[in-house]
Amino acid sequence: MTTSLDPFPWDTEDLEPATPTPAPTIPAEAPLAIQVTRYQCPHCRTTRSKKTAATAHISRCWKNPAVRTCKTCTHYEPPGDGDQCIPGRACGCNIYPESCNAEADIPEDRPAVHCPKWEPRED
């Protein structure tokens, strides 16, 4: 028997449990494999997506001996890295800028190119 205060005026024992509606299945799509061609400089690991851009880079690459830059010259002295000469203490005694032993001027923002004092470095 139900009363007016009963929140469920119907007999809840006669109700069937609700069946959840299954979510629709979406077929999983596999990613597509594509092949991309990149052009890499033979002197450094720089790559370009266009062959013309890679060719232009090679003609000015700092590691290309044909460009005659400081990086490929026997007179080039790389900058000091500031490694510790006393274990456990950074003394800074070997921090120095890059230089040229042939006394050629090296720009501050890039190596010199087509240097008249350039000589090939033996690696």
Rank of each mutant, 00 (worst) to 15 (best):
P42E: 02
E122Y: 02
C70S: 07
I34H: 04
Q40E: 06
L32H: 06
A102E: 07
E77N: 07
P78N: 07
T52P: 00
E119F: 00
L5A: 06
P87E: 09
A54Y: 02
D81N: 12
L32A: 06
I95L: 14
T19V: 15
G80T: 11
S99E: 08
P65N: 02
A56K: 13
K50L: 12
E16L: 15
P7R: 09
T52R: 12
P27F: 03
P107I: 12
A53G: 04
D81W: 07
L15G: 00
P22W: 08
C70Y: 08
Y96R: 14
P20F: 07
R89G: 00
I95C: 12
T25Q: 15
A104W: 08
P65M: 02
A112K: 11
P79S: 12
A33M: 04
P7H: 08
M1R: 09
A54C: 15
T12I: 10
E98C: 08
Q84P: 06
E119H: 02
T47E: 14
T2I: 07
A66M: 04
P42D: 05
T74D: 04
R38Q: 13
E122M: 08
E103Y: 09
R48C: 11
T69E: 01
A53T: 07
R121F: 14
I106V: 15
A104E: 15
A18P: 03
N64Q: 05
P111D: 14
Q40A: 11
P31F: 08
D83E: 10
D11N: 15
L32G: 06
Q35S: 10
P97A: 10
T21Q: 13
H43Q: 04
P79T: 05
H43G: 01
H57W: 09
Q84S: 13
Y76P: 04
E119M: 05
P42H: 06
W118E: 03
C73M: 01
E29M: 09
Y96Q: 13
R38F: 08
P22F: 06
S49G: 04
K50R: 13
T21W: 07
L5C: 02
K51Y: 03
